[in-house]
Amino acid sequence: MSALEDRKKKGLVFNIQKYSVHDGPGIRTIVFLKGCPLSCYWCSNPESQRREPELAFNPGRCLTFSKCTRCLQACLRGAIIREADDSLRIDRALCDGCPKNCAQACPSQGLIVYGEERSVDDVLRVVEQDAAFYTRSKGGVTLSGGEPLMQADFALALLREARRRRIRTAVETCGMVPWKTMEAAAEHLNYVLYDIKHMDGAVHEAQTGRSNEVILENFRKLAELHPDKPILARTPVIPGFNDSEEAVAAIAEFLRPYPNVRYEMLPYHRLGTQKYHFLDRVPPMDGVTLDKSVMPRLIEIAVRILGDRVDFPK
């Protein structure tokens, strides 16, 4: 693939977040790609799950129909409904995330569209704005999602072009992609953040919608074929799913043979709850919290097995 072809390649991006220090070494810019093969019960980025653009409504920003009706006039499909009490409702059966006419018409950003087609060149133009920070901190760009490698052609083009521009690269992946995609990405990655959620395939499938067979096999191949590539295996600790000593011990034992792999556990949080409401979905874990006593106990188990290869939550 030529550099010109890579720069023109387009994909669906729903956010570009600058100045992150949690998603790879140094200061990083995170490029979030739409689409995920899993449907994790605890997902904090519900806007990332579907491949197509999605319209969201934040009622706290809406000026109300008594002051503004621009979205009604802008919607081409009649999907914006004015209710009897003057509130706004989106008819999801009619809305197809069309080229965000209603969102562009909204003066208060009460309506937003998650997902915009952008080229590699356009994305890296934003990433390069912080090039000075990457140099000083040994940071770079991280592809995230959703599952960024689901948009394989676009993600690989982004990684190749970033490396041509001497930008360090990383990916946050759930590993549920064909091995040929993971293998191709590995050639252009400086760092990998890889989710290992549970070792029991049936439990994994019940909570994420897919078995972990491909995920674990891809991880084994990645760690064995690229022994010099730094990999951070991460486990989101979810109440009632993997917050037991047995679950964490099984993951740590799986990671033990790979010296290039570090391990980090991330405590469950509810930061994405509001976005479910914006998308007219019910938050599956609304009201659920992680007991404060859980993380120290699980970290102790992981350290007992992996020693100083365990990273503590930031």
Rank of each mutant, 00 (worst) to 15 (best):
Q109M: 11
L94C: 02
L124C: 06
D286T: 03
W42V: 10
E161T: 14
S20I: 11
Q207F: 15
A302I: 08
R77D: 07
D23Y: 13
M285R: 05
E172M: 03
V248L: 15
E54I: 06
G140K: 02
Y191A: 13
V126G: 00
P178G: 04
K100E: 12
K314V: 11
L255N: 00
Y19P: 00
K8N: 12
R28W: 03
A162D: 06
Y41N: 13
P148Y: 10
I299Q: 12
G240Q: 15
R210F: 05
P37N: 13
A170G: 08
S211R: 09
P25K: 11
D85M: 04
N58G: 00
A250C: 14
I238P: 12
D280T: 13
L88G: 00
R309Y: 07
R262T: 12
V120P: 08
C174K: 01
R256E: 15
P236F: 06
M295Y: 03
C174G: 02
A93G: 14
I299W: 02
R92A: 07
E161Q: 11
D23P: 07
E147A: 03
I167L: 14
N242E: 09
R210A: 12
Q129I: 04
D195W: 07
P25A: 07
D243T: 12
A184H: 00
G115Q: 13
R77W: 01
H269E: 10
V288L: 07
M295Q: 04
P53H: 14
R163Q: 14
H204W: 01
R210E: 12
C98N: 07
E47V: 07
G78H: 05
E52S: 07
G175L: 01
T273F: 08
R163M: 07
G287H: 09
L158V: 03
R270M: 13
L306I: 10
Q109P: 02
P37K: 10
V113S: 10
R82C: 05
C98M: 06
M1C: 03
E147N: 02
M285F: 03
P257Q: 13
G97L: 03
P53I: 09
I80S: 08
M285I: 08
F14K: 02
A185H: 09
R77M: 07
N242A: 08
F278T: 10
E116P: 01
D311S: 12
R89T: 04
